[in-house]
Design a protein around this nucleic acid. Structure first.
Lengths: 165, 165
DNA sequence: TCAAGATTGATGCAGGTGCATCGAGTGGGG
DNA sequence: CCCCACTCGATGCACCTGCATCAATCTTGA
């Protein structure tokens, strides 16, 4: 009789899986209904817009977003196709390149934040007091910071002008 | 200055997304490395094995698993292809059918639970006290039970003979 | 200096997912 | 009884993902 994971742990696991997939679904649906592209585009545009001169190496973007290399490569393709970013050659390392956000990209990112933040409020903010949100973050951090080893910023300086990291 | 979602809520949202994707990834990887199929197969086999006579209507399975209809249909295809389940006609409603788990299916489900439970312990159980796991479950439930309207069972009666719902 | 190995980014292929739609079958109201 | 609306499950299509691998370039160390 090993009983490896406690019933409590198992229950938390199940809820983690189900709740995030439901909530993510809801948010993505809201964005889509508002005529916006998927969240991944927002994340990429945000990272680019944050970067010193609006440009990043694909490798950097990849590390920020925690997605595989080929996935980054194709996401950039799509952004470029839509005129939201452009590829620029990298003089110092001819293997590499820079990806630079365009004005259209910056603008889309800002417009998306409107719908995105509304969705976060609707599906998360309105369900939890700030104190509970902090508790939840703390518990989640305990899970996150070790199966991989990425660090999220301590507790985030987020407001309407500098959206989420 | 609207500041719709508090920074606390936004931070919780980000962590929810990132942590679950990391943890899920880890668990799926462990299963794959142990030579098992994806978690979705396990979930389906579990639901089938729980059902009164080891069979369910696809529609039921769909509702249990919270996945779209076409997805269920194709998942069943794969299970049947691998001999883990079989389709049986439904006499009372000729549109429908029953899906019945096979012996091979039941056996695979049990073997997978070994690897699966070990992964849950590794990535969740070992990171959280039971009390914290309960807190986490409670907070997650507050998010889950309203963007859709499914109810997870109150807190789960899970042990080594009756794996997670 | 040069070969071996590591890093960057792209891509062919197989498979999975979402969307729309279809055909078969049911069932309820006129 | 029949027609219309609905439910059940399957499927064609486009797209997206993971995996393996590639070519180009950089770096290292003998």
């Amino acid at each position: 009789m090993k009983r490896k994971p406690s019933t409590e742990a198992t229950s938390a696991w199940i809820r983690l899986m189900r709740v995030q997939s439901r909530v993510l679904d809801c948010v993505e649906q809201d964005l889509k209904k508002a005529g916006f592209p998927p969240l991944a585009w927002y994340d990429a545009l945000l990272e680019l817009s944050r970067a010193p001169s609006g440009e990043l190496r694909p490798v950097e973007l990849e590390r920020q977003m925690l997605i595989p290399q080929y996935s980054t490569s194709r996401l950039i393709d799509r952004l470029v196709d839509e005129g939201l970013a452009s590829r620029r050659e990298c003089k110092i390392d001819k293997r590499g390149q820079f990806v630079e956000i365009t004005e259209a990209g910056r603008e889309l990112q800002k417009r998306m934040w409107g719908a995105y933040s509304a969705a976060i409020e609707k599906y998360v903010g309105s369900k939890l007091s700030d104190a509970d949100a902090v508790k939840l973050s703390g518990l989640l951090d305990r899970l996150g910071c070790s199966c991989g080893e990425m660090k999220l910023p301590p507790v985030a300086n987020v407001n309407e002008s500098t959206p989420p990291r």
